[in-house]
Design a protein around this nucleic acid. Structure first.
Length: 559
RNA sequence: GCGCCCGUAGCUCAGUAGGAUAGAGCAACGGUUUCCUAAACCGUGGGCCGGGGGUUCGAAUCCCUCCGGGCGCACCA
């Protein structure tokens, strides 16, 4: 149910009919209609909707755009359509359409009846997978992972509301080179803790968390691993550490409101799948050997250079595993595959899409949503995130400090394309400057109105006893209008993979509510008006709540 | 050097498919207590949309070029 889109379809038909009628009457000669739009003008004075068809047709039919628009408008006027208040030609040839408010007054019962389903678009029968965070299980979740978590989960929610069947997936990098290094680090720490004076690997994971993990292993196994062969010992160490790390990531992400449908292990690809995919690329002629390594001809697909897929030492690269992984995704039959990546990975896009194309899949079904980096601020000062100095802030610490709601809201507030300056002080502040509080407060305030009503013995009438057309104040109409936009806004956010639009939307909606609240009273001597306003408050609250749900932010009833 | 992203009000940022007079929040300034939460609201000022060229009826949006910032260009991931 998408009121705005329905209107657009309705108006589109009116325009097309008018144009065709004009052609039949010999007034306009055209071959085919241009790809015109019915859009919501920025200026209120330009109507509820505006159409640019005349400007687009002008060249083909060799008529002045305004003249053309006049003809179409006259034709529409002749039809005397009830829902149209006024249709006029303006500016360079726009057709401005003014509707009477009847469509707006249909919104309250629509939203009231749909409740927490308001905003959902019709099911489109398509399956989409969103893979996000997929952090290395060798350390803590950092701010980049946190932003990825918020963006990925919110986008998944948006796609769900937009009509897709959505799967959330976490790719566990539990194999490959960095796991070898991780294992070296674990083993070295283990041996050190058992009194051996050996140097720590130069490129090892020097963090305290590795030491802590090994201490827990010590508590469990004592020195017994010393007795084992090195491979056996290493296997136990790394299995224990990975299991612990994955459990930690899962726990932390759940605490962040993020739950996955699938945790996919990279290791499972190292049991034949990688070799298979390399073989199949080889057969298709996309692989060559040079300097004892195998290379994928990614330059055929617009990459800057070819990419090693199998090292000279016989071990596959990360890229090889990633190809096998993406082949697996496509084998699972998704109609759309979305990866959320940090912007530092942008160089991989061309070759990843190239590999998919080489395997015979449609690379356009894969979208990589890149997100820019996060900078943490405390007050006016940047918080340096350096693993070396150990001053990195982890996601758990962030949730601890500012709470899940603020963290989630802040991470999706900005376009993924935009660097995010995350101000810890602002996120904690309970004031109008803090956007998440501003929105939550709107919700709480509406709840408060209903509590007040209840205390006064006032109850909202049944829906069919309420007359929405009593809502005629500017602030009331603006609220209705904004609420009506919600499903369309979700559709746009899904199409453009733009989770920040929902944060913005709910911020705007909250602003309109606060504005209404300060101008007009809900609890009123006029019963009929009171009922209409209670209904308006009810659906405003529903819409705020539904939007916050998408963002993974709670909607408190009191603050 | 090559590639990707960014450059919009003092600050932080919006601005789907090109649309009419480019918006919001914060900051600044001026207001709002008989009233459902002053954690709020109303108003004012503030802009060569980084510069230049092009495409067209129309460009913040598309193309070219230059400048500035970030990131990438490993047999790391």
């Amino acid at each position: 149910m998408n009121p705005v889109q329905e209107l657009q379809t309705f108006l589109q038909k009116i325009i097309v009919d008018a144009a065709e009628a004009s052609r039949e009457q010999g007034l306009i000669a055209y071959q085919s209609l241009p790809d015109f739009v019915i859009e919501v003008p920025r200026e209120k004075g330009h109507g509820d909707f505006a159409c640019n068809i005349a400007m687009l047709m002008a060249r083909e039919v060799r008529m002045a755009p305004r003249k053309l628009a006049e003809l179409i408008v006259d034709m529409i006027a002749a039809n005397n359509i009830e829902r149209l208040e006024k249709v006029e030609v303006a500016g360079p040839g726009f057709i401005n359409i003014f509707l009477n408010n009847s469509w707006l007054y249909a919104i309250p019962s629509l939203v009231y009846n749909l409740g927490n389903r308001y905003g959902y678009n019709d099911r489109c029968g398509q399956r989409v997978q969103v893979e996000f965070v997929s952090a290395n299980p060798t350390g803590n979740l950092h701010m980049g992972n946190a932003r990825g978590g918020a963006i990925g989960d919110t986008l998944a929610n948006i796609l769900d509301r937009a009509g897709y069947e959505v799967e959330r997936e976490f790719y566990i990098n539990d194999a490959g080179n960095q796991i070898e290094i991780f294992t070296d680090s674990l083993e070295t720490r283990y041996l050190q803790l058992n009194g051996q004076d050996i140097p720590f690997p130069e490129n090892g994971y020097a963090g305290q968390d590795v030491v802590d993990t090994v201490k827990r292993i010590m508590a469990h196994y004592g020195a017994s691993l010393l007795e084992l062969s090195a491979p056996e010992r290493r296997r136990i160490l790394v299995d224990y550490a990975l299991q612990e790390k994955v459990a930690y990531m899962r726990r932390t992400l759940e605490n962040f409101g993020v739950e996955y449908d699938v945790w996919f292990s990279e290791k499972s690809l190292h049991e034949g799948k990688i070799e298979q995919v390399i073989d199949s690329l080889k057969e298709k002629g996309y692989i060559y050997e040079e300097d004892d390594a195998l290379w994928f001809k990614s330059t055929l697909f617009g990459d800057e250079k070819d990419e090693v897929i199998m090292r000279a030492n016989g071990l596959p690269t990360y890229f090889a595993a990633d190809i096998a992984y993406h082949q697996n995704k496509f084998e699972r039959g998704f109609d759309w595959v979305i990866n959320i990546w940090g912007a530092d990975h942008h160089g991989h896009i061309a070759r990843m899409k190239g590999a998919i194309q080489a395997l015979g899949y449609d690379p356009d079904k894969l979208d990589i949503l890149l997100m820019q980096l996060v900078r943490l601020y405390r007050g006016g000062n940047i918080v340096r995130m350096s693993k070396r100095t150990g001053t990195t802030v982890s996601l758990d610490e962030l949730i601890e400090e500012v709470g899940r709601d603020a963290a989630r809201f802040f991470f999706v507030m900005r376009s993924p394309d935009s660097h995010l300056d995350f101000d810890l002080e602002l996120a904690k502040q309970q004031s109008q400057e803090n956007p998440v509080y501003y929105v939550q407060y709107a919700h709480a305030r509406i709840c408060s109105i209903f509590r007040q009503a209840e205390a006064a013995g006032v109850k909202m009438a049944a829906l069919d006893r309420i007359e929405p057309s009593l809502l005629q104040e500017e602030e009331e109409l603006a609220l209705l209008r904004k609420i009506a936009d919600f499903p369309e806004e979700i559709g746009i956010a899904a199409r453009t993979m733009a989770p920040h639009r929902i944060a913005r939307y709910v911020l705007d909606l909250a602003g309109l509510f606060h504005s209404f609240y300060n101008h007009h009273r809900v609890l009123h001597q006029d019963q009929a008006l009171q009922n209409a306003r209670l209904l308006l408050m009810h659906i405003t609250r529903t819409t705020i709540k539904n939007a916050l749900d998408i963002l993974g932010v709670s909607a408190p009833e009191r603050m």
